[in-house]
């Protein structure tokens, strides 16, 4: 058995680093404020315009992959409406299931699928929102960014938004960061 006293000082520092990294990883889920993310998503719904055909009936938000935001979005859906429309939250495990969604939220764990999603959703009136930073440059229309001072912001890919037949309000644009 390895004894602590036999480990060099540098080794102890490394152990400490690994230990803290482990503890830190456990805390990720509870530290991020998904309620704030949900408020942004709600405003995306309000300030993005869908084509006429998608402007009636229930507003369907699909979550691709596991994300703690699901609980918050469910809370939103149970307490708020979008311009008189019910908000429905669906969790999907395959991109093909996103066909009936107006908004597709791509969880951080599914970020690697963004290019495939982009190709599959090409031209369809779906707002793809990436949880992980940088996805707006890879095919999502919007993606979240945490600034250096912890401010929560979002990137906007205007080209993708137009390609998906959506219109984004100037108010929303003024709050985000246009990446192209």
């Amino acid at each position: 058995m390895i004894k602590l006293k036999n480990i060099s000082f540098g080794g102890k520092v490394l152990l400490l680093f690994l230990f803290l990294n482990g503890v830190s990883a456990k805390c990720v889920a509870q530290d991020v404020d998904y309620k704030a993310y949900t408020l942004f998503v709600y405003n995306f719904m309000k300030y993005v315009e869908w084509p006429e055909a998608q402007s009636k009936g229930d507003f369907v938000v699909c979550i691709f992959g596991e994300s703690p935001i699901q609980k918050e979005l469910a809370g939103l859906a149970s307490s708020k409406k979008l311009k008189g429309r019910n908000i429905i939250i669906k969790n999907i495990s395959k991109p093909e299931d996103a066909a009936g969604c107006q908004l597709l939220y791509v969880s951080a764990s599914k970020s690697g699928n963004i290019k495939a999603l982009k190709d599959q959703m090409m031209g369809k009136p779906i707002l793809i929102v990436g949880e992980r930073e940088g996805l707006a440059k890879k095919g999502a229309e919007l993606s979240f960014v945490t600034m250096d001072d912890d401010e929560l912001k979002f990137d906007i890919n205007k080209k993708e938004i137009e390609q998906h037949q959506l219109k984004i309000s100037s108010q929303l644009i003024s709050l985000g960061i246009v990446v192209n």
């Binding site: 530290d31 991020v32 404020d33 309620k35 704030a36 949900t38 408020l39 942004f40 709600y42 405003n43 309000k46 300030y47 939103l76 307490s79 708020k80 979240f144 945490t146 912890d150 401010e151 929560l152 108010q171 929303l172 709050l175």
Partner: peptide, 16 residues
């Protein structure tokens, strides 16, 4: 909370 104005989004932090 969800009735915040769009301008109030500017004050939100990623970690609450």
């Amino acid at each position: 909370y969800y009735d915040m104005t769009i301008e109030q989004l500017l004050s939100l932090k990623a970690h609450g």
